[in-house]
């Protein structure tokens, strides 16, 4: 049981890191970026290819993986969001265009086999792979009944540090003030001399970099990298996390991530592995019905 709670904290950290990016975009644009889970997958897949196929050290792979994710953030903004914003299209259109981009990214990785157009990106097709042991030093400790692996334990301080930095930037710096102003009222922000388009690009870059990093950590700790890890593990769970914490709230996404990790592990222990997903979604449903603004949300914004 203790081990299970520890696992809940590991997986919760990854959920939180993923959901922070999700909620950042929703908080500022009121748009659900459904390509976020594809970016999560791409970060992990690209790092794996750099390390295993191209023989780079892990830290170079990770840095390039995060950089590529950030770049995809720019693609999301320039291809999927900005043209629609110019046209003042309904937000539901942005939902579809980001789904389209997610489809492209997943299909590109899925078709990455030796000899195909995307063999530089990925060579294992639809298979699931893991980093070879020894990619990162991974000492293991035993304390009582608990098994602590460094690769899993390190996720916790990394996630918490990143989320604290993000919280600090949002609250206390000039850039953060700009972002919050755009979230509050883009028109007024523009009148105050802010470059709204640039702020939104920045949001997508930060969000996607965090998403890609969450994917890399996921691949490292759980030893499961495939074109479908985004769709199967975090796409809908990310929604559950940001709803539990309150849409658009960064501390909410953090608490929501750990809460979902805990709920899932409790369901796993109590009802067995089949019930895991179902219980999480029942919790999500109840939360929306009983307290739609989430744990930390203060108001509901309705635009779609």
């Amino acid at each position: 049981m203790d081990q299970q709670i520890l696992n809940a904290i590991f997986i919760g950290s990854i959920y939180a890191l993923f959901a922070v990016g999700y909620t950042l975009v929703f908080g500022i644009l009121d748009i659900l970026n459904l390509a976020h889970s594809a970016v999560f997958m791409l970060g992990a897949a690209l790092t794996y290819s750099l390390v295993v196929t191209h023989g780079q050290p892990f830290w170079i792979g990770a840095v390039l993986g995060v950089a590529a994710s950030a770049l995809i953030g720019l693609v999301i903004e320039h291809v999927c969001l900005r043209p629609l914003r110019r046209r003042q299209a309904p937000p539901i259109a942005a939902l579809i265009s980001t789904i389209g981009l997610a489809l492209v990214i997943v299909a590109a990785v899925e078709q990455g086999k030796s000899g195909s157009l995307f063999s530089w990106l990925w060579v294992d097709g639809a298979n699931s792979v893991a980093f070879p042991p020894g990619t990162v030093p991974n000492p293991t400790w035993h304390i009582g009944d608990l098994t602590l692996e460094a690769s899993k334990v390190l996720i916790i301080p990394i996630s918490i540090a990143l989320m604290l930095i993000l919280g600090y930037v949002m609250r206390f710096t000039q850039v953060g003030r700009g972002l919050r102003a755009v979230a509050e009222n883009p028109r007024a922000a523009r009148l105050m001399g802010l470059d709204v388009d640039r702020m939104i690009s920045l949001t997508l870059v930060i969000s996607s970099a965090l998403g890609g990093l969450a994917g890399i950590l996921f691949g490292l700790a759980l030893g499961d990298i495939s074109p479908y890890i985004g769709r199967d593990n975090v796409e809908v769970r990310g929604l559950a996390v940001i709803v539990l914490g309150g849409m658009g709230s960064i501390p909410g996404a953090v608490i929501g991530g750990y809460l979902l990790g805990l709920i899932e592990i409790l369901a796993l222990v109590t009802f067995g592995s089949n019930a895991r997903g179902g219980v999480a979604f029942a919790a999500l449903f109840l939360m929306l019905v009983l307290r739609p603004q989430g744990l930390f949300g203060t108001r509901l914004r309705e635009r779609i």
Binding site: F26, D30, L32, P91, L239, A240, V243, M247, L284, F285, L288, V289, P292, L300, E302, R303, I304
Partner: peptide
Amino acid sequence: RGVFLAIA
């Protein structure tokens, strides 16, 4: 309403 209904 909106996205909240979708997620529910």
